[in-house]
Nucleic acid binder design. Structure first.
Length: 653
RNA sequence: GCCGCAGUAGCUCAGUGGUAGAGCGCACCCUUGGUAAGGGUGAGGUCGGGAGUUCAAUCCUCCCCUGCGGCACCA
C-alpha cells in the first residue's frame, strides 16, 4: 500500500501501482471523465502512469493552470501531425512549450508561406475533432532507430542516438501518427480544444547552431479557454503600441534612414532625454570617485593588434585606410584608449584605484539581422569606465560597483535584475591560471554581496570574465545592460604598470564597467518600460502651456517664461485650434503636463493642470504649480530625501 | 549573417499591364472655440534601386538595398 496526500491535505491509502486514471475513478465519475493528467510531488505525469510510492498527488483537469503546458505541448504534436499530413516528406525535429505557447521546428526543402498557417490550423482542428487517444509506448533504442530511419526522419534518429544509455525511450501515439517525446501528455487530442492560433513562421538552426541545417519554425499560442486566447492577442496588440520605434517617431525623438544603417539620428527631444541620462550617470559616478576622460575615436591598427582586438574582434570593426596609407580602426571599445591615458606618466600604487570614465561612442559592425531600433545599433554610446587597481582591491571594487548598479536601476523602477556570470570563452587571450583568478574574484564578490547569479558558461569577453546585468523590457524581452568585467590580460598586453610600495613595477588589474551599458539601448528600454510616459525629470518637454482663446496668449507666454526660469522645459501652444484638439495632440505626443489657460486663468493668475493619462483637471495658483513641478522634475539623485538616504546607505556599507 | 515576409505622399494604408488614390499630418483662409480630432481650399509621389519581358511596367521575372519576425550574435 502507498499513502497519497491530496491538495486538501487529506491522506489516503491505495494499492501500489494504481494509475492516475484509476485514482480519479475512485474519487468520482465526473473527475474520471475530466482528468487529463496527474501531478506527482509537483511533477506532471501521464494519467496512465502507475504511482509507485507515497507522495503528494493532484489530479489535473484541463482547466488546471498546471495543465496549460500540456495543452500547449499536445498542440505542438497535433501541429506536427497536421504538417506531415499536408506536406508529406517534411521531417519533424523538436516541438517544445514556450512562454505563452509552443513551436515546432520542421525540415522541408520548400518554404512554408503565411497562407499555409491557415491550412495547418484547419487540419489541426480536424485532428482535434477526431479526438484520438494519446498513448505512450516504451520502445527499445534499436526499434526506434529502425523506425525513424525507415520513415526518413534523420533528425529524430539523431535525437534517439543522443538519449543517454539507460534512459527509457518513449513514443507517444495519436491515431496513425507518433512522435518520440519525453511527455507527459493529456489523454487525447481532443483535449487541446479550440483556443489556439498559429502565429508566425521563422527560421531556426538545428540545435541552435548556425553551422547546422536551417529549419522552419512555426510558432503558435494555445490556451485553455477562448477568452484567454483573446486576452492574450489583445495584450500583444497593446505591447506593440509601446514599441520604442513607434513611440520614437510619435514623440519625435529619433529616426533612422537607409544611408546610416543601424545608426540613430537623434532629434532635439530625443537628445534631451539622452543627455538627461548622461548627466544623471555623470553625477552618480563622480560621487563614486570616477573622473571623466576622452579617448580618440580612431586609432591605428598597431594599437589594436597589441590589445588583441585585431585578432579577436576584427570581424566587428570598422576599418579605414587613410590617404597616408595607414590603417585606422574606429574604436569598438574604449579600453585600449584608457590604458594609454593610464600609461601616460608614471603611476604609483598610491594613485590606485584610478577610475577613468568616458561617454565614448563605440562602433561595431553588427550582423544586419541583429539590428533592432535603438536597442541594437552599430554605433552606440557607452557609459563606460575602467578601474585600474591592485588585485587586493579587486573584490572591494566589484562590490561597490554592484551596489551602485543596483541602486541606479532602482531609480528607474527596475527592482528585478538578473545577473549572469559569463566565464572564459573559446576565443580568448591570456593563460588559464589568470582566468581562474579573475573568475574567482567575481564569484567571491557576488557571494560577499549576497547576490544570486546564474552561470553563463563560455560567454565572457575575450580578455576576461564578466558579470552581465539584464533587464526585462515591457514586451518581455531581456536586454543586457550593465556589465562588470575583470581583466587581468589587457593591461599587461598594452604595457601598463604602476610602482608598488616595494619600488617594483606591477601590472594593474583593470575592471571594465558600464551601468546603462549602451545609452541608446537604455533609452529604448525606458521608452518601452514607461510606454512613453516618461517621468517628469526625463521628459524632453515637461510642460506645454496651451491657450483656450487668443486673448490669453500674453498670459501663456508669461507662464511659460516663469516655468522656464524655474528650470523647466516648457513650450507654448498658441495655435488657432480648439482646446480639444490641443489636448489630444499633446496627449498623443506624451507631454506629461498640460497647463491650459484661458481668460479666467489670466484674470485669476492660475493655471488649469491636466496630467498625462488623466482626464482630471485641477486649477491651481501659478507660483504653487511651478514649485510643485520643479520639485517633481528634480532628478532622483538630487532630491533632498534621496541624498539623505544615499548618505546613510554608504555609511552602512 | 541565415530563413521567411514586406517596401505606393511625412504617417497609416487602398489600388491598377495603359505613368495613382484615401484618412491623418502640412500650408493658407474662415472660425475665438473650456480639456482627446470645428469647417473650407491647396500643395505634396522618378509607386525602394537596377536590369529584363512587353507596343506599354508601380503591377510580371531576376539581382541589389532597406525594413519587419525569428534564429545565430550582442551593449
Amino acid at each position: 500500500m502507498i499513502k497519497l496526500t491530496f491538495p486538501d491535505g487529506s491522506i489516503r491509502e491505495y494499492n501500489q501501482g494504481i494509475t492516475g486514471a484509476e485514482l480519479a475513478a475512485s474519487i468520482s465519475k465526473s473527475l474520471a471523465k475530466k482528468a487529463v493528467a496527474i501531478s506527482l510531488n509537483g511533477q506532471l505525469a501521464d494519467l496512465a502512469d502507475p504511482i509507485e510510492r507515497d507522495g503528494a498527488v493532484k489530479i489535473l483537469t484541463r482547466e488546471d493552470p498546471d495543465a496549460l503546458e500540456l495543452i500547449r505541448h499536445d498542440a505542438a504534436h497535433v501541429m506536427a501531425e497536421a504538417v506531415q499530413a499536408l506536406y508529406p516528406g517534411t521531417q519533424v525535429t523538436i516541438g517544445p512549450v514556450i512562454e505563452n505557447g509552443f513551436y515546432y521546428d520542421f525540415y522541408r526543402e520548400e518554404s512554408f508561406t503565411p497562407d499555409d498557417l491557415g491550412k495547418i490550423e484547419a487540419k489541426m482542428h480536424e485532428i482535434i475533432a477526431r479526438d484520438m487517444p494519446l498513448t505512450k509506448e516504451v520502445w527499445s533504442r534499436d526499434e526506434a532507430r529502425a523506425y525513424f530511419e525507415k520513415a526518413g526522419e534523420a533528425f529524430k534518429v539523431e535525437l534517439v542516438d543522443a538519449i543517454p544509455e539507460g534512459e527509457t525511450l518513449k513514443i507517444y501515439r495519436q491515431g496513425e501518427w507518433l512522435d518520440l517525446c519525453r511527455g507527459p501528455h493529456m489523454t487525447s487530442t481532443g483535449k487541446v480544444g479550440k483556443a489556439f492560433k498559429l502565429q508566425k513562421l521563422a527560421g531556426a538552426y538545428w540545435r541552435g547552431d548556425h553551422r547546422n541545417p536551417q529549419l522552419q519554425r512555426i510558432y503558435g499560442t494555445a490556451w485553455a479557454k477562448p477568452e484567454e486566447l483573446e486576452a492574450y492577442l489583445k495584450m500583444l496588440e497593446e505591447a506593440e503600441k509601446r514599441d520604442h520605434r513607434r513611440l520614437g517617431r510619435e514623440m519625435d525623438l529619433f529616426h533612422f534612414q537607409e544611408e546610416a544603417q543601424g545608426s540613430v539620428f537623434w532629434h532635439p527631444k530625443g537628445w534631451t532625454l539622452f543627455q538627461g541620462l548622461v548627466n544623471y550617470i555623470r553625477r552618480r559616478q563622480t560621487a563614486e570617485g570616477f573622473v571623466e576622460v576622452n579617448s580618440p575615436d580612431m586609432m591605428e591598427r598597431t594599437l589594436w593588434e597589441q590589445s588583441g582586438h585585431w585578432e579577436k574582434f576584427r570581424d566587428n570593426m570598422y576599418i579605414a585606410e587613410t590617404p597616408d596609407e595607414k590603417v585606422y580602426c574606429c574604436k569598438p571599445m574604449n579600453c585600449p584608449g584608457h590604458v594609454q591615458i593610464f600609461k601616460n606618466g608614471l603611476k604609483s600604487y598610491r594613485d590606485l584605484p584610478l577610475k577613468f570614465a568616458e561617454f565614448g561612442k563605440v562602433h561595431r559592425y553588427e550582423p544586419s539581422g541583429a539590428l533592432h531600433g535603438i536597442m541594437r545599433v552599430r554605433h552606440f554610446t557607452q557609459d563606460d569606465a575602467h578601474i585600474f587597481c591592485t588585485e587586493d582591491q579587486l573584490k572591494d571594487e566589484c562590490l561597490k560597483l554592484n551596489a551602485l548598479i543596483l541602486d541606479i536601476y532602482r531609480d528607474f523602477g527596475f527592482e528585478e535584475v538578473e545577473i549572469k556570470l559569463a566565464t572564459r570563452p573559446e576565443k580568448r587571450v591570456g593563460a588559464d591560471e589568470v582566468w581562474d583568478r579573475a573568475e574567482a574574484a567575481l564569484k567571491e564578490a557576488m557571494t560577499a554581496a549576497g547576490v544570486a547569479y546564474v552561470l553563463n558558461e563560455g560567454e565572457g569577453a575575450f580578455y576576461g570574465p564578466k558579470l552581465e546585468y539584464t533587464l526585462r523590457d515591457a514586451i518581455g524581452r531581456d536586454w543586457q545592460c550593465g556589465t562588470v568585467q575583470v581583466d587581468l590580460n589587457m593591461p599587461e598586453r598594452l604595457g601598463a604598470f604602476y610602482i608598488g610600495a616595494d619600488g617594483e613595477k606591477h601590472v594593474p588589474v583593470m575592471i571594465h564597467r558600464a551601468i546603462f551599458g549602451s545609452l541608446e539601448r537604455f533609452t529604448g528600454i525606458l521608452i518601452e518600460n514607461y510606454a512613453g510616459h516618461l517621468p517628469l525629470w526625463l521628459s524632453p518637454v515637461q510642460a506645454v502651456v496651451a491657450t483656450v482663446v487668443s486673448d490669453a496668449d500674453d498670459y501663456a507666454v508669461e507662464v511659460a517664461a516663469a516655468l522656464a526660469a524655474a528650470g523647466l522645459r516648457v513650450e507654448t501652444d498658441l495655435r488657432n485650434e480648439k482646446i480639444n484638439y490641443k489636448v489630444r495632440e499633446h496627449s498623443v505626443t506624451k507631454v506629461p503636463v498640460l497647463l491650459v489657460v484661458g481668460k479666467r486663468e489670466a484674470e485669476e493668475r492660475t493655471v488649469s493642470v491636466r496630467r498625462l493619462g488623466s482626464q482630471a483637471q485641477t486649477v491651481a495658483g501659478l507660483a504653487e504649480t511651478i514649485a510643485d513641478l520643479a520639485a517633481e522634475a528634480t532628478p532622483p539623485d538630487l532630491r533632498a530625501e534621496a541624498s539623505v538616504a544615499k548618505r546613510s546607505n554608504s555609511k552602512a556599507a
